[in-house]
Design a protein around this nucleic acid. Structure first.
Lengths: 224, 224
DNA sequence: GCCATTGAATGACTGCAGTCATAAATGATA
DNA sequence: TATCATTTATGACTGCAGTCATTCAATGGC
């Protein structure tokens, strides 16, 4: 008796079902993003998402574990788009310390500007791995480059990664309450550079250098 | 029709009701701790807690917001007991950097040894303030002492606090998977000292100095 | 001693997250 | 193009978190 009782009522095209088939995941993702951008994230229910995506309630759990879980790829894509721009604007820069620092400072600002990221940060009751994949993927990459090229001096690469990521996330978390988080972000960058072995003067100079301007991202509802 | 239908069946002493009255919060706390230490934290329901505490289901929400919320004072008390011992064993130490570092290293080890703390860390989807009050209260105190006495050199005290707390928590979080987290904890301590302005040699020396022994805590079911 | 006021305590109730038995679509084999 | 195996989808169902209208002990005024 379960399954599609209503869906087959109009088995006219049949391709409609096929279309649903192939990209349930993508449909859920875009429906979730739309709904969560419309209203408060908390009030969006799984049922609303699956209704909007025109898939069954259970289908959601085939692709995602929870509401948090569906946010990860959404904000990940947002971050990836910005990261591409940031990297572009840093094309000429050869110093790994400057690349990392500028990237982190810009990405932190961008992150704090997005309502979905803000909610995610405030509710980051997520395992380390999700944090890493979504929050710190880009910063981590640039940071490791600094280590691998010998620009940074760290006693324990593994611990250093967790250390810096945690510091980064918690500083952003605290900055959620601020109107202009720029100064705190830069102070954080300075501290990271210190931790990475740069002397205080150089850390301060790099962390407070002027930032390159980036063109704003167009409305984030576009599909690939 | 609600209220106590069963509770008044034996209105023998009447003082029993009075006793329930005054310390619902304490009863909930001890019942919650007992249940959560008995089985997996996840499987304990609010209903089970209120049943064990012999209070109504709704009473729970009068005192606590959630299951996470009830854990905060529980693990806070555990930490406070250990902190007292740690401070005692550091009575002779005058260097704020050594006090902070030793305290942090010991408390991290103790924290990682407690199942309730481990669960809390793994599920720390809690606002910064809870984290601060439970996770970092003692470390934060010692850290600020280092700043205030001029032993530490930090550009921004506020940011520094969030930075260090986040680094601390996330490093512990990552250490949950390790059999012996000691080495990682010490590496973390070294990084904190660097961030606080100590030169690399001194940071390493202090962070890897031998730890004082502490007598183990007796079974944590005692009431004050 | 009586009544009014307060706010702690209660548990039936609501709504959502997450599960699971069922079933449709797809693909492979021949 | 029939048959079986595998993958993907479904929605009724379960159980718990959290709410809220109601009850009642306690306290203070008179």
């Amino acid at each position: 008796m379960p399954a599609n009782s209503e869906a087959t009522t109009s088995s006219s095209t049949l391709s409609r079902v096929q279309r649903k088939r192939k990209n349930a995941r993508a449909r859920i993702l875009s429906a979730a993003e739309r709904l969560m951008r419309e209203g408060p994230v908390d009030t969006v229910t799984i049922q609303q998402i699956t209704d909007a995506a025109d898939v069954g309630h259970g289908t959601f759990y085939l692709h995602f574990k929870s509401k948090y879980d569906v946010l990860v790829p959404i904000i990940g894509r947002y971050a990836a788009q910005w990261d591409a721009r940031v990297q572009q604007s840093l094309a000429g820069e050869t110093d790994a310390a400057r690349v990392f620092t500028t990237s982190a400072r810009l990405m932190a600002r961008v992150t704090l500007a997005d309502p979905l990221w803000r909610w995610f940060l405030a509710h980051s009751g997520v395992p380390v791995e999700d944090m890493r994949s979504a929050v710190g993927a880009f910063s981590t990459r640039d940071f490791h480059r600094g280590i691998d090229t010998g620009r940074f001096d760290v006693p324990n690469k593994q611990v250093m990664s967790h250390f810096v990521l945690g510091a980064y996330v918690n500083t952003l978390l605290a900055s959620l309450a601020l109107d202009d988080p720029g100064a705190d972000i830069d102070a954080m960058a300075e501290l990271i550079l210190r931790t990475a072995g740069l002397d205080h003067a150089e850390a301060a100079a790099i962390a407070h250098a002027p930032l390159p301007k980036l063109a704003p991202l167009e409305p984030p509802g576009d599909e690939t």
